[in-house]
Simulated scan of single mutants.
Amino acid sequence: MPTPLYVCKAEFFKMLGHPVRIRVLELLQERPHAVADLLGAIEIEASSLSQQLAVLRRAGIVVSQREGGAVVYRLATSDISDLLRAARRILTDMMSGQEDLLAELRELQGGEGA
């Protein structure tokens, strides 16, 4: 029996559900990066970064290539950039709604003190 699509999607989003992985993808969205560059930008232990890159590589989200003495990573597809932009738009809309609610609550709270 094949795995239902919704289960595959859940596994995909679970794989993305780590702050270091998201940060790596954001950096790779700008341009390919050598591991040393990623280490400098993210400021974590090399072993931790290696583990997170391995997860992304196994999932087919990133690809690596040796260039001289460095291993350079890039996004496997531009669809990942589209996904990150969509997430940013969704979060911006969500935060905007929260700001409106907060302003309304502050307005109500100000009326109570009068």
Rank of each mutant, 00 (worst) to 15 (best):
A70E: 13
A46I: 09
D79I: 12
R21V: 05
L84A: 02
V7G: 00
K9M: 00
M94R: 06
I61Q: 03
L25A: 06
M94Q: 12
G60N: 09
P32R: 08
G69H: 12
C8Y: 03
R21S: 05
L83I: 12
S64C: 13
R106M: 09
C8F: 03
L75W: 02
G60A: 13
Y73R: 02
L16C: 06
V35L: 10
Q98C: 07
L38D: 01
H33D: 02
D82I: 14
R74L: 11
L53H: 01
L53N: 00
Q109G: 03
Q98H: 14
G40L: 10
L16S: 03
S81I: 07
D37Y: 01
L53V: 07
R89D: 10
S64L: 14
L16H: 01
M1I: 15
R23Q: 10
R58K: 15
A70D: 15
M95G: 02
L75Y: 03
V72P: 00
I42N: 02
P19Y: 06
S78P: 14
L53W: 02
A103C: 06
D37K: 12
G68L: 10
L5H: 09
Y73L: 12
Y73C: 06
R23V: 05
E30S: 10
L25V: 05
E43L: 15
G40F: 07
Y6P: 00
Y6L: 09
R88H: 13
R21E: 05
A87G: 08
L56P: 04
R74V: 06
L49A: 04
A70P: 07
V63I: 14
V24S: 00
I90S: 02
L105R: 01
K14I: 11
R89W: 12
V72T: 06
S48N: 11
S81Q: 08
A76C: 15
I90Q: 03
G110S: 14
M15E: 06
R66S: 08
M15P: 01
Q109C: 06
R58P: 10
I44A: 03
L39E: 05
L105W: 07
S50W: 10
M95C: 06
P4I: 09
S47Y: 12
P2S: 09
R88K: 12
V71R: 09
R89K: 12
A34L: 08
L16F: 05
V24R: 00
S47G: 10
I80W: 01
Y73D: 02
A54V: 13
S48F: 12
A10C: 07
E67P: 05
S47N: 13
L25I: 06
F13Q: 02
V71K: 08
L105T: 03
G111Q: 07
Q52A: 08
E30R: 11
E107A: 08
A46F: 09
R31P: 04
